[in-house]
């Protein structure tokens, strides 16, 4: 299929992109690598009147040392996050997860900001950001604000980003010595996870996040609190599905996903032990 027609606006800067979003409102969609948006447009599930192309804002592709955190430009591609020495040494989970998104071709084009802004509960990177306790920087007409990962994902494919805001940077705490684990259960390597778990030791304890267990990417809150209160890994894992609303689709129903979440959290905690 071919997307429906649209007006194409190439933003020369982040400010220009924000101006275009302000001008066109709901009619406009930002396009970075396009790997979340173009598939929807090809099926005409998304038919924006205006596409604001930010894919060539090279200034938003970087990995920087932000002191206590890593600052990663929103347009940094998955393959660049995956192979960045700084990300690998300071936030190993994130580098690893970036290397698990889609397939090599997708990783050569898709961006970390685009993936997070899409807010897909089945995608990998949001869980990594949640487990790391990271945040994103949103820039709008009124300036910048920092949105903690835990507040970013508000509904199915919905985020706390305002329609005229641009996600410009991703921040994750530097956790060079942290143990981490990523468990992705799928039927084919290229598929989204049926259920996935990202877990990482961070300053606040152990962050555990779930993939494809509800309407949004989510923290496994019951697991985290169990661990914080000293529960065994097995007892904590048993609580993996608490507070989730697992979807029912061809690959799994709620019962099976609940089971998988428990198994995968258990495996993640075992790997980290």
């Amino acid at each position: 299929m071919i997307p429906a027609s649209f007006d194409y606006v190439e933003a020369a800067s982040a400010e220009a992109a924000i101006a275009a979003l302000t001008e066109h409102g709901d009619e406009a969609k930002l396009m970075a690598g396009g790997h979340s948006l173009i598939p929807l447009m090809r099926f005409r599930l998304a038919t924006p009147a205006v596409v604001v192309d930010i894919s060539r804002l090279s200034g938003l592709s970087y990995v920087r040392d932000g002191g206590d955190h890593l600052a990663i430009g929103a347009l940094t591609r998955h393959c660049d996050v995956e192979t960045s020495d700084m990300v690998r040494s300071q936030a190993g989970l994130l580098a690893h997860v970036a290397g698990q998104v889609g397939d090599p071709q997708v990783r050569h084009r898709g961006t970390i900001g685009g993936s997070l802004a899409h807010g897909d509960p089945a995608s990998d990177l949001p869980a990594a950001l949640l487990a790391l306790g990271g945040s994103v920087v949103a820039r709008g007409p009124g300036g910048e604000r920092v949105i903690p990962a835990a507040e970013l994902f508000t509904g199915f494919l919905e985020t706390a980003l305002a329609p005229d805001e641009l996600l410009t940077e991703v921040r994750v705490p530097k956790v060079p010595d942290a143990r981490w684990s990523f468990q992705k259960f799928n039927r084919r390597a290229q598929d989204w996870a049926i259920v996935g778990v990202a877990a990482c030791g961070n300053g606040a304890g152990t962050g555990v996040a779930l993939i494809n267990m509800g309407q949004t990417p989510m923290v496994a809150a019951a697991v985290q609190s169990a661990l914080a209160s000293g529960a065994s890994a097995a007892d904590a894992a048993a609580r993996a599905a608490e507070g989730t609303e697992p979807p029912d689709d061809l690959n799994g129903d709620a019962e099976y996903r609940t089971h998988l979440a428990q198994v995968l959290v258990g495996r993640a905690l075992a790997e980290m032990a």
Binding site: M31, I38, S55, P104, V106
Partner: peptide, 16 residues
């Protein structure tokens, strides 16, 4: 290959 790297040309706008 886009600048030497493999990509899926069905998921990229030529304009991009």
């Amino acid at each position: 290959l886009l600048n030497g790297e493999s990509v899926k040309s069905c998921t990229i706008l030529a304009a991009q």
